[in-house]
Simulated scan of single mutants.
Amino acid sequence: MPDLATADVVALTAALCDIPSVSGDEAPLADAIETALAAYEHLEVLRDGDAVVARTHLGRARRVVVAGHIDTVPVQGNLPTRTETRDGAEVLWGRGTVDMKAGVAVALSLAAQLATPAWDVTWVFYDQEEVEATRNGLGRLARHHPEWLAADFAVLGEPTAAQIEGGCNGTLRAEVRTHGRAAHSARAWRGENAIHAAAGILTRLGSYRPAEVEVDGLVYREGLNAVDIRGGIAMNVIPDTCVVTVNYRFAPSRSTAEAEAHVREVFEGYDVTVTDLAAGARPGLDAVEVADFVATVAATTGGTAGPKYGWTDVARFSELGIPAVNFGPGDPSLAHADDEHCPTDQIRACAAALATWLTKENA
């Protein structure tokens, strides 16, 4: 890994991406991050599993957490990274450039460079965000070491195209089952086909109209979709079970209990098992710290705050009573895409905006 304090932030992004770190296999990257941060005397470096925390102790009146996850979804022939020109702009292409190693590179670069920021800063680099919520490294830190996350405000470097996105939708996954009776496919009349019975589930999904919900001035778009379907044990057996996995993205005004109740209502009459559930987070843009950050970013990169449609760990900070926003380089619609790529000017813009805010004299 290049020297954090002197490396160009785009080159640092490429170096981070070129260390594969699919969820559950983050150890090599966590080791590299820990070693690199340990070289700076102004930082106390801590570790839990493959989550690395570095923090200043300058006696400032306020503390901010700047956080980002270091894992990615599986690589699909999109490493190593490369620099390209698209529509006249330079982009960095490859897995993780958007979600979210560009944001991690911004934080690592500033952690090394800003020895005396106006805020005390806790820099958090954590594992297993791209998998089920129970494995999430930030959640593990909150359970094992809540004092490591204590702060007045948090910035999560998730991709937002260098704009601020407030709050986030919640997410629920559920398995919707149909049941039949197994039989030899040559005598299909002796069985009941569970896959055929799943047609009713797909019909309900096809006719579902997701809501748009205004929460504290931002409009969140919901969604309910099938993301997996499976059934059958052999090509000559009528399947006696079929499972359709659905994902519900719900506005932060809904509680997890309300979200679950809604899914069960949509699939009334079917066997429904919730397998993963995480609450959303309201925008919280009226907090003083958030308003100041929004103003600084607007002056540096332009634009206004919008909603975060996906689930992010701002929800975990919200549960801890810490106002939080999403702010990072990369188009979120390219997250997880095989053609994942991030404009290099957004990486530099996010680094500049965050550095400006962290060094403001009235912070």
Rank of each mutant, 00 (worst) to 15 (best):
M1D: 06
D3S: 15
A5M: 09
T6L: 11
A11M: 12
A11H: 15
A14V: 07
L16D: 05
C17D: 00
G24A: 02
E41C: 10
V45R: 13
A51N: 11
V53D: 15
V53R: 12
G59R: 13
V65M: 05
A67E: 06
H69L: 09
V73D: 04
T81N: 06
T85H: 09
K101F: 13
A102H: 04
G103N: 13
V104C: 12
S109I: 04
A111W: 08
A112P: 00
D120L: 07
D120I: 07
V124K: 06
F125T: 03
V131K: 14
A133W: 15
T134W: 08
G137K: 08
G139W: 06
R140D: 14
L141M: 07
H144Q: 13
E147F: 13
L149A: 12
D152V: 08
A154I: 12
V155G: 09
E158P: 02
P159A: 10
A162N: 10
E165Q: 15
E165G: 12
G167S: 05
L172D: 08
T178V: 01
R181N: 01
A183N: 02
S185N: 04
W189V: 08
E192K: 09
E192A: 14
A194Q: 05
A199Y: 00
I201F: 06
G206L: 00
V213W: 10
G217R: 10
V219C: 05
Y220S: 08
A226S: 08
D228K: 14
I229C: 03
R230F: 00
G231Q: 01
D240Q: 10
T241R: 14
T241F: 01
N247L: 03
R249A: 09
F250W: 05
S253N: 15
T256P: 06
A261L: 02
E268F: 02
G269T: 06
V274W: 10
V274Y: 08
D276Q: 13
G280I: 01
R282N: 05
D286I: 01
V294N: 08
A295Y: 08
T300F: 05
T301A: 11
P307F: 13
K308D: 09
K308F: 09
Y309T: 14
A315S: 15
A315Q: 10
R316H: 09
F317R: 05
E319M: 13
G321P: 06
P323Y: 12
N326P: 08
N326T: 05
G328S: 06
P332I: 01
S333E: 12
E340T: 05
E340Q: 06
C342V: 12
T344F: 01
I347L: 03
I347V: 15
R348L: 10
A349F: 07
A351N: 03
A351Y: 01
L354F: 11
A355Q: 14
W357F: 14
W357Y: 14
